[in-house]
Each structure stands twice: as C-alpha cells, then as structure tokens.
Simulated scan of single mutants.
Amino acid sequence: MSHWMTIKDLNIYYGDFHAVKDVSLAVRPQSVTAFIGPSGCGKSTVLRTLNRMHEVTPGAYVTGLVDLDGVDLYGRGVDPVAVRTTVGMVFQRPNPFPTMTIRDNVVAGLKLAGVRDRRKLDEVAERALRGANLWEEVKDRLNKPGGGLSGGQQQRLCIARAIAVSPSVLLMDEPCSALDPISTLAIEDLIAELKTEYTIVIVTHNMQQAARVSDQTAFFNLEGVGRPGQLVEVGATKDIFSNPERRETEDYISGRFG
C-alpha cells in the first residue's frame, strides 16, 4: 500500500512564538526523506508535527495541512493517539522501557490497544524483531529486560516497537546521534530495508548520512535568532548534494556555515 504524506502551508507555534513558517512538501511512499539544517532551524519540530507529538507541549499548535492518504491528520474528529499508531516515531536516544522484557517492549503498543492473545503477541514480537534485524541477537533472551541491551540494540528494539503496530509512516529523529559508528551502520542498513515497506522521514545532523540513506532531502534554515525556521529547498538527494538551486543550501552542504 502506498502512503503519501503531503504537508501544505504548515506553520508551527509555541504559544506566541512562531517556530516554523510556511512549509510545503510531499513525502513519497516507500522512500526516505531526510531533513537537514543547522541546529534550531525547526527540522525536529516539523517532524513532531507529522504525528501530532508537537501539541503535547502546552500552548503548542499548528496551522496548515498534514495529509496522509487523503486524511487531514489535524482534521476534526481525528484521534491523535490513532495518528501516533499510524505514524510511528523513533527518538534520538534509545528509550526502551528498561525494566520491561525485550518481548514486552516490542508488543507494548498492542497490549495498550487491548490485544491479549499470547500467540498473536509472540508472532508480532518475532516479526517486528526480524524486521528490525534484532531477532537473531535476542531470540534466546526475550524475557530479559530491554535495558540490558547495548545502545545500538536498544535503538533497534525501539524500531521494532514502532513497527509492531504496523504503521504507514516511520519518523526518526536523529536515530544514530547517540550511537557508535558500527551501530550507526546497522541502523542505516535497516533504514534501507524498511523503506521497501514504510514511508520514512529522518532528521539528521549528519549530512553524509542524509546522502547515504535518503531519496529526497529537505534543507531547513533560520534567518536569525527569534525568527521562524523555514524550508529553503527540497529535492532529490543527489540534486541537493551535487547541484542545489539555492546558494544557502550550497553554503551549508559545503560547510561554509552551520
């Protein structure tokens, strides 16, 4: 199933502060879109609006359209909790439930939704762990705490937890920034595999990573302190990195600022 995500005239606020202005872009199904740009330019903020995590902050709100397969995620009567199941999220630091078993970590979302069938939970746990390239490493210790895994394994456990509920879209907020190079490579390989099934949006500070893993790159920038972040340019990753249309994109990518 193809899952198109369309963002149109998106403006993001924290109370009176206009954090990000006028973002419009389309995210193709079964592809990886990378958000890059200097710190504070709003890329993680935009990511958090795509599954309604932004509004968890008191006073935070958005205007504009975030559309998934023809449904406005901010439309009247749309349940934010359901949105967060359909649009899964993996955070910067691995955040498994440390005292919960590896198996229970993976199926936490299903249990929350009321699934009690042990066989079904076991099947989903195995499928998700295989999907996250973690099954072979943990299949003999599914009843041990998730907090006992290495950092890279914990991040793959969080990815397994996200895909266990069968989302359409996976959001990843700098998923490798707390990991060593070998674990980072494992996550990058995993992203390449996951995009055959999911629409993926990743925020990364690492431009080489964006160039390696993404099909489309969106460059965000900030005009000044206290000014809203904005989308400068979006396009095929190979074009953004080799032949960007905007001078500030070229300056950022060539390391002249940021």
Rank of each mutant, 00 (worst) to 15 (best):
S31K: 00
G37R: 00
V66L: 03
K111G: 11
D79Q: 12
T33W: 02
Y13N: 06
V87P: 03
Q30M: 12
K21E: 13
V32S: 00
L50Q: 06
G64C: 11
E55C: 06
V62A: 05
N95H: 04
H3W: 04
E55S: 06
L110M: 15
H54D: 04
H54F: 04
R48D: 08
C41I: 05
K111V: 14
D79W: 13
L73E: 02
Q30N: 15
P29A: 03
P96K: 00
T45R: 00
K111Y: 11
T6P: 02
V83C: 01
I36L: 04
A113K: 05
H18F: 08
G77L: 12
V81G: 07
S39C: 07
T99C: 03
S44W: 04
V106Q: 01
F17R: 15
V46A: 07
Q92H: 07
V71Q: 14
G59E: 07
M100Y: 10
F97V: 15
M100V: 14
F91C: 07
R52T: 09
T86V: 14
V81A: 14
P80T: 10
P29H: 00
M100F: 13
A82Y: 11
M100K: 09
G77I: 13
A26R: 07
Y14P: 03
V66C: 03
D69H: 07
D79V: 13
K43F: 06
H54R: 01
F17S: 15
F97C: 07
P96C: 05
P58N: 09
L65D: 14
T101R: 02
V46M: 01
F35D: 05
V81L: 14
R52F: 02
L50M: 13
M100W: 12
G42N: 02
K21A: 11
T101L: 06
V23T: 08
P29K: 00
G64P: 09
R93Q: 15
T49W: 01
S31Y: 01
G59W: 05
G15H: 00
S44Q: 03
Q92C: 08
A60M: 02
G15D: 05
P38Y: 08
V71Y: 11
G15E: 02
G70K: 04
V78N: 11
Y14K: 05
V71S: 11
P38S: 13
D69R: 03
A113E: 07
R84C: 05
R84E: 06
V71R: 13
P96F: 01
T6C: 11
G64F: 09
V78K: 09
D9W: 10
H3C: 05
P29E: 02
T49P: 01
V56E: 06
L68M: 06
F97A: 10
A113D: 08
G40M: 06
D22I: 14
R84Y: 00
I7G: 02
S39A: 10
L25A: 00
L73I: 14
A82N: 12
F17L: 15
Y14H: 08
L68P: 01
N95L: 07
R103K: 15
S39H: 03
M100L: 15
S44N: 08
L110S: 12
V27E: 02
D16S: 14
G70N: 07
G88H: 00
L73F: 04
S39T: 13
L112C: 11
V78W: 10
